[in-house]
Deep mutational scan, measured.
Amino acid sequence: MSRESDVEAQQSHGSSACSQPHGSVTQSQGSSSQSQGISSSSTSTMPNSSQSSHSSSGTLSSLETVSTQELYSIPEDQEPEDQEPEEPTPAPWARLWALQDGFANLECVNDNYWFGRDKSCEYCFDEPLLKRTDKYRTYSKKHFRIFREVGPKNSYIAYIEDHSGNGTFVNTELVGKGKRRPLNNNSEIALSLSRNKVFVFFDLTVDDQSVYPKALRDEYIMSKTLGSGACGEVKLAFERKTCKKVAIKIISKRKFAIGSAREADPALNVETEIEILKKLNHPCIIKIKNFFDAEDYYIVLELMEGGELFDKVVGNKRLKEATCKLYFYQMLLAVQYLHENGIIHRDLKPENVLLSSQEEDCLIKITDFGHSKILGETSLMRTLCGTPTYLAPEVLVSVGTAGYNRAVDCWSLGVILFICLSGYPPFSEHRTQVSLKDQITSGKYNFIPEVWAEVSEKALDLVKKLLVVDPKARFTTEEALRHPWLQDEDMKRKFQDLLSEENESTALPQVL
């Protein structure tokens, strides 16, 4: 008996699950189920560990084997000379395990699969056993689809999209007709009724959600790893209520002995410091949205989908001078704002400069500016000194954290500008005749005249004003913003236009 009217009423009120309206889709043409990776026989039982391990490696599972009696060998002398080797079968990115008779397991190899009674669906509900069930008529011709799209860092995100009359449910929550939600590992998919569980979705590319604290899981769906560094790992996640993407940084307390840091400095109150950081608001710094204190720290951040500045300059790639100017102007505005709010970044580098898009002209935002507030000064500097390429001379020669101030950030900005303009770092371990530390503390950077011949004198002058060993003589952010190279009204107008595109209400910060 159909429950279409009941569920449609529920759909009209929406769902609290991570779902959002989605535009129309072009329906895929039908194809045989076997060619799409559906096993030839149905099963109602969950797999054992041996079955799972075989399939996850990209080899055929026991459900897909063919009797050897149906095959015969071709003698080598009868092999056609022009026969080309077969292409290897792509490894599946996800697996659906059937929970009921009449449904088959599915190895997801393609990027898009339609499910329903219509014969054009890649996964067609046409098993005779299924057709005899009382629920068969409640399934729509095109009930739902599972697909994946390219996300940040060229990774993939799996989604389920509801197109049914009676509802598609993920972990008992209604997706909603015309809406989608991301699928995470071990999600249970039910059709027409929330208790009519048909599939379990296994994402073969992500970790299980159960490793994360419950308070975090209640608000966010964790997904793929976006990156990792000395101070922690960053994962893509989704807000459950809105389906908006965020980035979540995970900082290990054990790695940084944060408990010991608190004992050594009783004034170090991470929760208080995070609340201060959350109040920071500038178009060129990453917004801190939320914070969870569990076995590790979880910092929920605004997501930038254009990648890191590092990706644009790695491998001796240089940027156009006009692009360097647009990016560097924004970096200076961001660091100036942090300094005005009493925050020294201490870890400025291309990896911590994020881009809003893949376009050459785009907004940038500074991230990882609050680590000293979370990890403690000593722990952070011990970590950073392991990779000193961007560290100021006074940091390398000081004991502990004494003896330096916000000028350290201006040195790091000078190193970043040098790399963007030239395509190579000013200080490098590859210069074996002088140690990296000695290069930095003496201010002897690697200047290649033929490379810098293409760079304007004004740009080079600003680099020199920032890479000054004496912090008292080094340019401040205010002085850098007043430098002739940055007195470019076309560049500032472009920045204002980019801000307006992102948010019509965002105004250009005042600069002296």
Rank of each mutant, 00 (worst) to 15 (best):
G176S: 12
F115T: 05
D203S: 15
P80T: 11
N184Y: 07
E219S: 07
Y159E: 14
N184L: 13
G232N: 02
V211E: 03
H54A: 14
K253F: 02
V150G: 04
G229E: 05
N184K: 08
L183N: 00
L204C: 03
G14T: 07
N154S: 10
Q36Y: 02
E8F: 04
I250A: 05
S12T: 10
S210Y: 15
S120P: 14
G178L: 13
L99E: 13
S155Y: 15
C121V: 15
H22P: 11
D101G: 11
K153C: 00
T172E: 02
R240H: 15
E84Q: 03
S155Q: 09
Y123L: 15
C108D: 01
N269T: 10
G178Y: 03
T68W: 13
R117V: 01
L193S: 03
Q83R: 11
L99A: 06
Q209N: 15
R3Q: 12
Q36G: 06
V109C: 00
A9L: 03
G259W: 10
I251W: 03
G178S: 15
A17D: 05
D126M: 12
Q69Y: 06
D101L: 15
H143F: 01
S187C: 06
D82W: 06
N48K: 10
S19C: 05
I221V: 08
T225Y: 12
F238G: 02
E233N: 11
S16R: 08
Q27T: 09
E239T: 11
Q83S: 04
S40V: 08
G227V: 01
T133S: 08
I160K: 02
S57Y: 03
R262C: 05
K177H: 15
P85W: 08
G176F: 14
Q83H: 13
Q83L: 09
P80F: 10
I157W: 15
K253N: 05
E86L: 06
C18F: 12
P213K: 06
Q83F: 02
T26R: 14
Y159Q: 03
S41D: 07
S260Y: 05
A94P: 04
S2A: 11
A264N: 02
S32H: 12
S33D: 12
F201N: 00
K241F: 10
S210F: 05
K249A: 01
T133Y: 10
Y156N: 10
V211Q: 14
Y156F: 14
T65S: 04
I221Y: 12
C18P: 11
I38V: 13
Y212L: 00
P85H: 09
L96G: 03
I38W: 10
S42G: 11
N196Q: 02
L71P: 13
T133A: 09
D118C: 13
T205F: 01
P85K: 02
L71R: 03
S56G: 05
A98V: 09
E86P: 03
